[in-house]
Design a protein around this nucleic acid. Sequence first.
DNA 1: GATCGATAGTTGTAGCATCCAACTAGTTGT
DNA 2: ACAACTAGTTGGATGCTACAACTATCGATC
Lengths: 153, 153
Amino acid sequence: MSDATDLEIADRLGVQLIRFLKLVGKAGAQCQASHEDGIERASYALLACLVTAGPRRTTALAESVHSDTSTVSRQVSALVQHGLVERRPDPADGRACILAATATGERVYERNRRVRNGYVAELLADWPEQDRKQFIELLSRFNTQFETKGDQR
Amino acid sequence: MSDATDLEIADRLGVQLIRFLKLVGKAGAQCQASHEDGIERASYALLACLVTAGPRRTTALAESVHSDTSTVSRQVSALVQHGLVERRPDPADGRACILAATATGERVYERNRRVRNGYVAELLADWPEQDRKQFIELLSRFNTQFETKGDQR
DNA sequence: GATCGATAGTTGTAGCATCCAACTAGTTGT
DNA sequence: ACAACTAGTTGGATGCTACAACTATCGATC
């Protein structure tokens, strides 16, 4: 039973993707507004990266989050000012610095993560175990596909 | 086999949501930059709504796309200037106007949609039929959940 | 049918996120 | 030691968004 052509499928998915983007983006923005750690939403992604994936240079961090170096540079400055991230000179290169989350940064990250998790969990509350896992699996695969196919276009 | 608690699941999904937001958001921005219809990315969502869901007032449109009225008002102005959307006075209310896509607007929408579909189809190219359908189904359900549970928080 | 509170939409202002381009300072190869 | 390169910062610009103040209309009530 496959009356749906590839394009029809793509079309329906496209609609859902746009909807998804809008919804998640907005929710993210609201989350940020409410928390008031002095930490911006975009910066949270940087913090998350540093905490979960370890210290790294600005350039590497920018690549990790698919952002411009200049953007990251500014955001990192803010994080440093708030004491959430630490700049360590890179012994191997005087121009570079290694960015690392401070203890405070880790705490803030954890706190935010817990809030986020609570919210997500609430959304998934009625879902059967099977569907949840499937959704994560598919979304994750889609993202990966996007990262590999999308960047080289 | 369920060693994953609800929170672990939420956590993994959260990560994927953030990843998605960044990836798709960026791709969207690039798409916009390349097309040069004079049409902004955000405005495209408005056009899409008017084409697929029919004419409506500014307020209703803003609600449909989960945006502020003022934001929509400006974006609509741009669309009107480009001849993609038409403002019709609302016979039932002198303050309001009914927004509707023009023929040009529909053409532009269709063209953009085709490009988008091609891109999405390419992403899904290697996916088994089953998974594609499942993904759309789950994503769609998640969006609905988000819209109903998310807004009243 | 005049008055006053609600409502539709516009415009002013401000913030964040992002990018590109120009710049500074340190590095590396010849 | 000089030239070509690279890491990061800063300047300038744009897009998207929201909130607040304002204008013009509507509707209910007296």
